[in-house]
């Protein structure tokens, strides 16, 4: 059987994380959740995700540092940054670090699903 695409969701807000996990599981992905950068790194080493949805402001290490570290381990990993703040400087920085996209909360779940489909086929 073909391996399902694996997604890592990193957000310290438990219900935001759970909601994103549930929504993506319904779409047929295998989804893992982490509440901090360190937890995410441990989980990524074990589960080898294809894509990570990362909140910009997570405790311990910020979202962009986490994305850089994840991409050091696996350059093919796609990262989608999410944030309550849509400041142009932050968006620019995220794209420079190699993020595939940047979504400003609150966003429609279908926008995230579309982006993930595009990211995984690109």
């Amino acid at each position: 059987m073909e391996r399902k695409n694996r997604i890592l969701v990193v957000d310290d807000q438990i219900w935001v994380r759970r909601m994103l996990q549930e929504a993506l599981q319904v779409q047929g992905y295998e989804v893992f959740g982490a509440s901090s950068g360190f937890e995410a790194l441990q989980l990524a080493a074990e589960k080898k995700p294809d894509l990570a949805v990362i909140d910009m402001a997570i405790p311990g290490m910020d979202g962009l540092t986490l994305l850089s570290k994840l991409r050091e381990i696996n350059l093919n990993l796609r990262g989608i940054m999410i944030s309550g703040d849509g400041e142009k400087k932050a968006v620019k920085r995220a794209l420079e670090v190699g993020a595939f996209a940047y979504l400003v909360k609150p966003f429609d779940i279908s926008s995230l699903e579309n982006l993930i489909r595009r990211a995984l086929t690109s």
């Binding site: 807000q13 935001v16 909601m19 929504a23 319904v26 309550g84 909360k105 609150p106 779940i109």
Partner: peptide, 19 residues
């Protein structure tokens, strides 16, 4: 910012329910 997060999760769960 603190209010935005719970609103976002409520909306997301409602969308899942809606589907």
């Amino acid at each position: 910012h603190e209010i935005k997060n719970p609103l976002f999760s409520i909306r997301g769960f409602l969308q899942i329910l809606n589907n």
